[in-house]
Simulated assay, not measured.
Amino acid sequence: MTVRAREEFVKPASGREDAVMEVKNLKVHFQLDEGLLKAVDGVDLTIRRGRTLGIVGESGCGKSVTSQALLRIVPASGKVEGEILLYPSDRSKIDGIDIPDGDPVDLVGLDGKGRTIRSIRGGEIAMIFQEPMKAFSPIHTIGDQIMEAILLHKTANRKEAYDIALETLRKVGMSNPEQRMDEYPHQLSGGMRQRAMIAMALSCEPSILIADEPTTALDVTVQAQVLQLINELRDHTGTSVIFITHDLGVIAEMSDEVAVMYLGKVVEYTDVDTLFYGPKHPYTKALLNSIPSVARRDRLESIEGTVPFPMNLPPGCGFYSRCPLAEDGVCNAGDIPLREIARGHRVRCVKAEQV
């Protein structure tokens, strides 16, 4: 790669030594016949080494599209803007680009189909998809699919790749891993398929693991096992985790920091304890009040209305039409910034002090 191209893609370091990735003003827009659909509209995130960032919100808030943007797998009709700054743990893993020590790579500037992003995707950043039955190929064995990633990113020796795949299946608690290597996805139960998906994601020892609602289709006991497994692997390997879910109970179990998304924007960003014991955005508080509890005797609260369609939106807060604190001329007068109200606690609300 030429020096000019390297300067275009590599950004100056921010000085945050614990950051594995910084996302700045990320936007993912889709140009449709009806207008511009803003699926993600100015998201800022920091993923820290060995920690878990939870991203929570209702369906349609932009969580999954955000994760697709981080891997540069947004559909061709989508336009990605902003900065996705990756601080690679092993610069030798990344092809086609010369990275000075300490400098991040801006993934937005890379060709989405080029060899540089393909060496990052799976090598430095891996993903556990929401539905493994759809993510796995139905005509290839589990072993072949895990080995494919290892052969691409770690070794060209098939025997060594087989051994790594087998050992990874053992680490994720797969029963009889030798047999599972030769089986097809439809021969595995839902929990076993999810373990195989986790094994494939972790086989190349990525710096960042994105888990996009990995327990949605599982029963409660298997869900607990998968969550425990991800936590144990994070603690053992030091991998950073981005955990995407709509379940606040899972967020409480998994996360160190939490970003609450609504209508393509982060509306509250803080540590998990502050989020549960001192929420400052009406949407976050409404989500917490809607959590079922055995101890509750009153009627379960709900959030009236639905998430608006992210196209041709009026100015102001996206939660305006559903918010009990909404004030005409204040909350809908213009764009509301994400402001810091306490150290490490940012809120996108002009009435945060009243929540």
Rank of each mutant, 00 (worst) to 15 (best):
K38H: 01
V40H: 02
V40A: 04
D41R: 08
G42K: 06
V43Y: 07
V43K: 06
D44W: 08
D44E: 12
R49T: 15
R49F: 13
R51V: 02
T52E: 00
L53W: 10
I55E: 10
G57Y: 00
G57R: 00
E58P: 06
E58F: 05
G60C: 01
G62S: 03
K63A: 00
S64W: 04
S64I: 03
V65R: 00
T66W: 00
A69G: 00
L70T: 04
L70E: 02
I73C: 12
V74G: 03
S77H: 15
K79R: 03
K79H: 02
V80R: 03
G82T: 14
G82P: 11
G82L: 13
E83N: 08
I84A: 08
I84G: 11
L86I: 12
Y87A: 08
P88S: 03
S89A: 13
D90H: 13
D90F: 13
D90S: 14
R91G: 13
R91N: 11
I94L: 06
I94K: 15
D95C: 09
I99W: 01
D101K: 09
D103E: 06
P104G: 06
D106L: 15
L107M: 04
L107D: 01
G109W: 00
L110I: 02
D111T: 03
G112P: 10
G112T: 10
G112Q: 09
K113Y: 07
G114E: 04
T116I: 12
T116W: 12
I117M: 07
I120Y: 06
R121W: 11
R121Q: 08
R121M: 07
G122N: 15
G122V: 11
G123V: 11
G123R: 15
G123H: 13
F129H: 02
Q130C: 02
Q130E: 03
E131L: 02
P132S: 15
S137E: 07
S137L: 03
P138V: 03
P138S: 05
I139G: 02
G143W: 15
L152Q: 10
L152K: 12
T155N: 11
A156C: 14
A156Q: 14
R158L: 08
K159Q: 11
E160C: 09
A161C: 13
D163F: 01
I164D: 12
L166F: 09
K171I: 15
K171M: 12
K171C: 14
V172L: 11
G173L: 08
G173Y: 06
M174L: 12
S175P: 07
P177V: 11
